[in-house]
């Protein structure tokens, strides 16, 4: 058991190492430079700026410097375009915002998606089924850059106490969390419906039915546990995505989260910020998968021997 965990952790470290190495070289292969400006920077100034960030060095030298800095000093480096701002500052200021937004929207997604999917499965091929699915699927059939502004105008502009955008009071969390939650509600509803249908047609449920147990009890006591497995499995990877922010939602609702940095760092060629963000995100994914695997092992004794 411990050997298994250790080997998984080892795999995770190697994955992160490969990830950061790939990212390091990929970002430097991009066209353009961190110093591209509408108003051209004079040659001699450019030289000094590159010396300051170390980007004047050959790429292998840069790479080993970066690794050394990362491993020895646990330092992700500084921003290139913003003198004196650290990558770790950007992440530590924006991640809590994305985390709280992600948690709230995943709760909303669960509250809408799971009941809609379960009810749809129980009332399969009836009007209720279609109604539930239709409501749940609005989130993916209309893009978030449509739902977001629509909600902002419909709710934010008409209700005085809900701001159309910003991040200064808890009431500001509602609209972005709802928009983000709707997308995932659609996935959850569809998955829950499929999973529930699989379980409801299994023999032990039929047996329970035949014995005359009331159907709501069957659903709640017997079917839910198995039927929600696909939906719950989906939450894992989706969660890593949601708490690392969403560019579209953040720009529509002016949320100071992490998602915009993923996009802006790439378009601004902020090499160290991209690397830092990728490492952080990779850490989340590897961690989430590790936890999922461990949970699976803990739940399923047969796997423990393997």
């Amino acid at each position: 058991m411990i050997r298994l965990i250790l080997s998984r952790i080892g795999q995770g470290v190697i994955t992160l190492f490969v990830l950061i190495t790939l990212t390091f070289f990929l970002v430097r292969a991009m066209p353009g430079s961190p110093y591209a400006e509408e108003k051209a920077i004079p040659e001699h100034a450019l030289k000094r700026m590159k010396e300051y960030t170390g980007l004047d060095q050959p790429i292998p030298v840069q790479y080993f410097r970066y690794l050394k800095n990362l491993i020895v000093h646990q330092d992700l480096g500084d921003l290139i375009k913003k003198d004196g701002v650290k990558v770790s500052e950007v992440i530590s200021q924006s991640f809590p915002v994305s985390l709280s937004l992600g948690l709230l929207s995943i709760s909303i997604a669960l509250m809408i998606g799971i009941p809609a999917g379960v009810i749809a499965a129980v009332k399969k091929n009836t009007c209720i089924d279609y109604l539930c699915l239709t409501c749940a699927m609005i989130g993916i059939c209309l893009p978030s850059f449509v739902i977001g502004p629509l909600l902002a105008v419909a709710v934010g502009l008409s209700l005085k106490s809900i701001n159309v955008a910003g991040w200064s009071s808890p009431s500001d969390w509602i609209l972005p969390a709802f928009t983000l939650g709707l997308i995932n509600a659609a996935y959850l509803a569809r998955l829950a419906r499929g999973g529930m249908l699989d379980v409801l047609s299994q023999d032990y449920i039929r047996t329970a039915k035949a014995k005359g147990a009331p159907s709501t009890r069957i659903v709640i006591r017997h079917a839910l546990r198995g039927g929600l497995i696909p939906a719950v499995a989906f939450i894992g990877p989706a969660f890593a995505g949601m708490i690392s922010g969403s560019f579209v939602i953040e720009t529509i609702f002016q949320v100071p989260g992490m998602g915009q940095h993923f996009v802006n760092a790439a378009t601004d060629r902020e090499f160290f910020l991209i690397q830092g963000l990728v490492l952080f995100y990779g850490f989340l994914i590897v961690g989430a998968n590790l936890l999922a695997d461990l949970a699976q092992i803990a739940l399923n004794p047969r796997l423990r021997k393997a």
């Binding site: 994955t15 490969v18 990830l19 790939l22 990212t23 990929l26 970002v27 991009m30 990877p237 993923f262 996009v263 760092a265 790439a266 378009t267 991209i274 963000l277 990728v278 995100y281 990779g282 994914i285 590897v286 998968n289």
Partner: peptide, 12 residues
């Protein structure tokens, strides 16, 4: 798959 998943999409 994990690595591809975490690579910065925009850069690619």
């Amino acid at each position: 798959v994990d690595i591809l998943f975490a690579l910065p999409f925009l850069v690619l």
